[in-house]
Amino acid sequence: MSRKKPRRRNNLGYYIKEGVSSIFTHGFMSFASVVIIIACLVIMGSFLLVALNVNDLVEDAEARNQVVAFIDDSLTEEEARGLEFQILATNNVYDATFVTRDEAFQAFVATHEEAELDNLDEEVFRHRFVIDLDNIAYMQVTLDRLLMIPGVDAVRADVAIADFFVSFRNVIVVVFIAIVGVLMLISVFIISNTIKLATFDRREEIAIMRMVGARNWFIRWPFIFQGFILGLTGAVVAFGIQWGMYGVLVDQIVRLSGGNMIQPVSFYEVANMMISIFMGTGFVVGTLGSAIAIRNYLKV
């Protein structure tokens, strides 16, 4: 029998419509999935904001954590100044400022009590470079390198403080990854179950679709859209909640600290990044959840 081949038709509207209707058919499960995604994203977002603030602190510490390289007494001021090039060429050195022994003595005098200065000879002071680092995580290595420069006699730095900030940041990152990982797994699991339930509910309809010659993807797309829409809905709501929560929290911190101690990162600075991360995560979690649900289950 001759058969006119039907022209291809754009099914996007159908897929979205079916996906949305499937969401409302399982109102409670859909609601639960969205709540889980929101919880996941808000916890993730909170950690991210903490991490961003800690990172800010570390950068502050980096700015304040200067390394001092003392120059050998036998070098003249001219010779000592000449070391600047070698010091700047050292890895991880961001900037170096030469301080003469005289300037160092004057600075010391300015900040210390008269009594302490009694037995102090200007000769005790040495020419020095005050050095800023790129990354305080590599402070110890950098110190070792600086010491290898001929003419550098000794170095001084607060490795302990640097280490503290760096390990604090590292711990936050590890905890962040672990928590986010677990939360994402839970979200994927819940979404995938919601969608499995939807496919189970519509199994007769799906059987009929198969019987009349639907392709695998024609059957699958509505469920992919279902997961996708759940994920994105969660992301948008979570972003709103995060925004509100952070605003309140920052207000409290600023008020308690009198407005000068701590300068939290402003939400507006990170809003674009946050919404992108939320949408991205919502998309991945939603789509992955539905993909898992239909992977082996929906075959023609």
Partner: peptide
């Protein structure tokens, strides 16, 4: 094996929709 929540028309139209037929 009709889809209970679809109308008579939709039950039949659906089979065409699945094959990518135009409205």
């Amino acid at each position: 094996r009709l889809i209970e929540k679809k109308s008579v028309y939709e039950n039949v139209a659906f089979a065409m929709r699945v094959t990518g037929a135009r409205e």
